[in-house]
Design a binder for these strands. Sequence first.
DNA 1: AGCCTTTATGCTCAGGATAAGTATAAGCCA
DNA 2: TGGCTTATACTTATCCTGAGCATAAAGGCT
Lengths: 320, 320
Amino acid sequence: MGQTTGSSRPPRRPADHAVTADLVAVLVAVTDGQPKIMTIADASALPSGPFQFAHRSLQTGLRAWVEEQTHHPLGYVEQLYTFADLGRTGGPKTSHRISISYLGLTREGQARQAAQAHWSGWYDYFPWEDHRAGPPPMLAKMLTPRLRAWAKSADAAAAQRERWQRAAINFGLDGRDWNEELILQRYELLYEAGQIPEAVRSKANAAATVPGRPMTADHRRILATGIARLRAKIKYRPVVFELMPAEFTLLQLQRSVEALAGRLVHKQNFRRLIEQQELVEETGAIAADTVGRPAKLFRFRHAVQAERAAAGTKLPLSRS
Amino acid sequence: MGQTTGSSRPPRRPADHAVTADLVAVLVAVTDGQPKIMTIADASALPSGPFQFAHRSLQTGLRAWVEEQTHHPLGYVEQLYTFADLGRTGGPKTSHRISISYLGLTREGQARQAAQAHWSGWYDYFPWEDHRAGPPPMLAKMLTPRLRAWAKSADAAAAQRERWQRAAINFGLDGRDWNEELILQRYELLYEAGQIPEAVRSKANAAATVPGRPMTADHRRILATGIARLRAKIKYRPVVFELMPAEFTLLQLQRSVEALAGRLVHKQNFRRLIEQQELVEETGAIAADTVGRPAKLFRFRHAVQAERAAAGTKLPLSRS
DNA sequence: AGCCTTTATGCTCAGGATAAGTATAAGCCA
DNA sequence: TGGCTTATACTTATCCTGAGCATAAAGGCT
């Protein structure tokens, strides 16, 4: 960084257009086995702030105002996606607004929060995504029939089949497995099918949409992107620990994973996985105030962060 | 999209700061088993263009001028990362410049290209990344000693160990395995170690840096990000086919994968993997003009795009 | 024709990872 | 004490993966 250029720089078109950039945060915590996100504006928006000139980088900009709002150190942060909000804000369409979104993992602190900020359960926004107690009834009762109707409403027969196939794949219909990582695709399918209030202009039509709390602009899409990323990431990187207290039992850890994934895991195999990867170590202490046999307490082995640059390979690499 | 808001929108700080946004493309093709990228300005920069107000979205903006420049349809496109260029451009520091980078996969067409655009081998920029013929000699001869010196130059003993551990992990030293996905980490480590010309201000110091063609601003970092993404992605998504001609032999496919990964794969196992996943189907034709036994020609089964929403799971999910 | 080189393709085998289930231990409480 | 709950250890069948062996099919050379 800090190179002085000018000569070797690629040529610029004369008219660069100014835009404004917002930083939008999907801030996640897990409390009592429920995944939460930080919201503002009466739980209708994700916290966001302008990218200001004073900020040294995008990430420091984000960290700055998130910590200002939550008074909580932000552990893990990663960039999610950059969206262009095309004149959706209603004002005169003289400039683009760009939203640069981030995923942040933290814990629900007792620290003082900004007045209107609070933690909302993320399944309030996507009630069809929580399969921990089996597939939610609304899936068969409401979503499936509506998706079928939407598929049928296509003009050509091929288009009808294609629509239904997408629905079946994304929602695990026709005997397919449920894939929890497809949350963004499911949201976008429902959006296309006119089942998402944010997509519907009139209040009357909005009433006919699917349950699930809407959000301002495309914040619910950003949230879906964040959940999808996190659901994928916990499978190959030890990021759950960012959401855990310093000490925890293996069951608590399992419940957090289940909360994020929206589905249950096999208890014994989960422990084997955690232990064989040496992700945790015993603290020596025993959990108190529990039902049943008391469990050992564990802590995350921070050393693995350094040891593992690991990324699972899926190619038949030859060693020679 | 297209919602009219205004009331429920989150509150904005008064002073939104204007920025300019560039779209930067890492455009990849594989020709004769060599991975190439589109470059401009005498191979010293990635093609980039301003995000213009006329563009309906970021991606269409990118597609627009890429196809204008290459006259080639852009198949697969995905967003990579958004960087903030902090006053690096040398002008007065009155505004931020944001680079939104994309990865695009295509084929090296015979179509007319923009005057200064051409395809460069990507290993020109990262010569230490091509391990197809074994570890490049420069690794042991040059990089390792310099990294060791850099580690030793830390002040505290703990910092020295920490530096060396990072180097060893990222470059597969001390008997560790080479991990081709860590290309970005390796670049950034070399950057920190003062081995990258872009990081060095004076010409004199730049001469002492490591081989590998430099690029304007942080374009080489963006390229590394793109390569890393692609090397990871080919392992769980059938994206290589975007880089292949309509018909190909399994060996050609393998060579393309090897070109991207920078390392060799086990031939028989590679075929097994491809076939058992039913990614391809025989065309019935046989490759002509070859040495050795003629190989069957295959084509990509486009149906899999629809069938597979697949994302490999690594959690011990319970089926019940 | 016989042999060599080259690439294609089929098959085996061992080890490790995974999904699922069984069994036992250790608390609390009625 | 027996029953309820959770913790933890172990077994089993199956699948995946890395590695290597063996054979097939082409052209070129002697």
